[in-house]
Design a protein around this nucleic acid. Structure first.
Lengths: 150, 150
DNA sequence: TATTGTTATACTCTATAACTATA
DNA sequence: TATAGTTATAGAGTATAACAATA
């Protein structure tokens, strides 16, 4: 991560480029912030979705987060081996798995969210509450433009 | 890419998560848009920086774009093998390389920029000019918070 | 000694295709 | 037939360490 492109350059005018760089700033600070927990950005997303939707099944988590079925497998295995989530066969559909938080996972998530909120406040310390809300709104609207292919 | 997280969820409130998803929306549409050209996001960034700064050296390009020295090597080789950029030994520092556009590279860049502008207009069709300007401004301010480590 | 570019290497994330077991 | 999860595999992107040539 280094010097930004002034907005007078070819790249500086491109929203896609700016998004990539801003996202990278958050990702690398995220990694530093959660150092020691062993939690990365993607597994953290899974933990958060499972906590918000106890009993959700594996495929649905992937669909919500834009993670392909095949790539979910090792991610879920990792979280189970770490003792953070629990997997059960769905009694109503024996092909599917039902996911839930372990007590340890819930503790870990709470800890991570606290650290992440501090890291976001740090990175956005130059922003007013209104600016942050505007940013979230604009980003959410971009997300809604996604071509839902899977 | 699929259903977004409502802003009432754990993830929906996190700017880092929203940035990652919005960035992914742009990246996947970018890939479709430049399909057939063989140009990806990162190499496109390099082309744009070299075009804006003829005679720039390899390391500087990497520093501007947040690409590590070691990772620049195959990227530059790829662009040279494709005949898009030209590499010369810097006469004032024989360790360093000086990069420039080939005629073909300049044509390719012009073509790509035109397509990218159309793709950005499409993705941002629900945004006013003021909203787009606000977004670019907010993202640029985040970039400036980057911890410049290398 | 420090820096430019290189090589080798490893890890994460993403993508596709073919498989199984259930539905 | 279609779907949930799995396996195998390949490609991009990113990271570190050690090296040669030059400063």
């Amino acid at each position: 991560m280094t010097e930004p492109q002034p907005h007078t350059t070819t790249l500086g005018r491109l929203v896609g480029y700016r998004l990539r760089r801003a996202s990278a700033v958050f990702a690398s600070d995220f990694a530093v912030t959660l150092e020691g927990t062993g939690i990365r950005q993607i597994p953290m997303g899974i933990l958060a979705v499972v906590a918000d939707n106890p009993g959700i099944n594996q495929g649905t988590v992937g669909r919500l987060l834009g993670i392909k079925r095949a790539n979910m497998v090792p991610l879920i295995n990792e979280l189970i081996e770490a003792g953070l989530i629990v997997r059960e066969t769905d009694p109503t559909d024996r092909r599917a798995f039902t996911l839930g938080m372990s007590a340890e996972g819930q503790r870990m998530l709470t800890e991570c969210v606290a650290r992440i909120e501090a890291h976001e406040e740090r990175l956005l310390s130059g922003f007013t509450a209104a600016e942050k809300a505007t940013l979230l709104d604009l980003l959410e609207r971009i997300e809604q433009r996604a071509v839902t292919t899977d």
